[in-house]
C-alpha cells in the first residue's frame, strides 16, 4: 500500500501511524518545524502534481527495493509555526531492517527529489531557505546497492 498526501492540513500522527501498521515491523519519521535563529513562521511552496508524482515514484522505489508492505509520505504545505509537524514518513515490512532503511531512504531522497521550497519568516524579514550540501550527501548514499 502506498499513501501520498500533500496538504495544508495538520498531520494527525496517530492516524498516520495506524495507516502504516500493516506488518510486523513499522518505522516512522516525523519532521517538526524548528525555531532556528528565531524563525516565527515557515511557509512551504510546492509544484502541484509534480510533487505528488515525485513522492509516489520514491515510495514505489522503496517498496520494490525493501519489499515493503506499506509506505506513506505525508507533507504539509502552506504556513506553519515552530513545533508543528511538517513531514511524516512511515514504512512497514516483515522485519525491522527493511522498515528502518526504507524510512531513512524516503526522508533522505525526499529532500533532494521532491519539489518543495521553504521560506522562513523572522519578524518582517522573510527569506528562502538554501539547499544544504549535506542533503545531497545523505541522498547519494542510497545510490549504490
Amino acid at each position: 500500500m502506498i499513501h501520498i498526501r500533500v496538504s495544508p492540513a495538520p498531520i494527525d500522527i496517530a492516524a498516520e501511524q495506524a495507516r502504516v501498521e500493516q506488518d510486523g515491523a513499522v518505522a516512522t519519521f516525523t519532521g517538526l518545524v524548528r525555531a532556528d535563529d528565531g524563525v516565527e513562521e515557515l511557509a512551504l511552496e510546492h509544484y502541484p502534481g509534480a510533487t505528488e508524482a515525485a513522492l509516489t515514484r520514491l515510495a514505489e522505489e522503496a517498496c520494490a527495493r525493501w519489499s515493503l508492505t506499506a509506505a506513506s509520505i505525508v507533507h504539509r504545505v502552506g504556513a506553519m509555526t515552530p513545533g508543528e509537524r511538517i513531514v511524516f514518513v512511515g514504512t512497514a515490512a516483515a522485519h525491522r531492517a527493511a522498515a528502518l532503511e526504507a524510512c531513512a531512504f524516503l526522508i533522505d531522497r525526499l529532500k533532494t527529489d521532491a519539489p518543495f521550497w521553504k521560506r522562513e519568516r523572522r519578524g518582517d524579514d522573510a527569506r528562502w531557505v538554501e539547499q544544504r550540501d549535506g542533503d545531497h550527501a545523505a541522498a547519494a548514499r542510497w545510490k549504490a546497492g
Binding site: 519532521g31 512551504l44 510546492h46 509544484y47 509534480a50 507533507h75 511538517i86 513531514v87 526522508i107 525526499l110 529532500k111 533532494t112 527529489d113 521532491a114 519539489p115 518543495f116 521550497w117 521553504k118 528562502w128 531557505v129 538554501e130 539547499q131 542533503d135
Partner: peptide, 10 residues
C-alpha cells in the same frame, strides 16, 4: 517547463 531554485523540502 518549470524553472525553480534547488528544492528544500522535508
Amino acid at each position: 517547463v518549470a524553472l525553480f531554485p534547488p528544492v528544500t523540502g522535508g
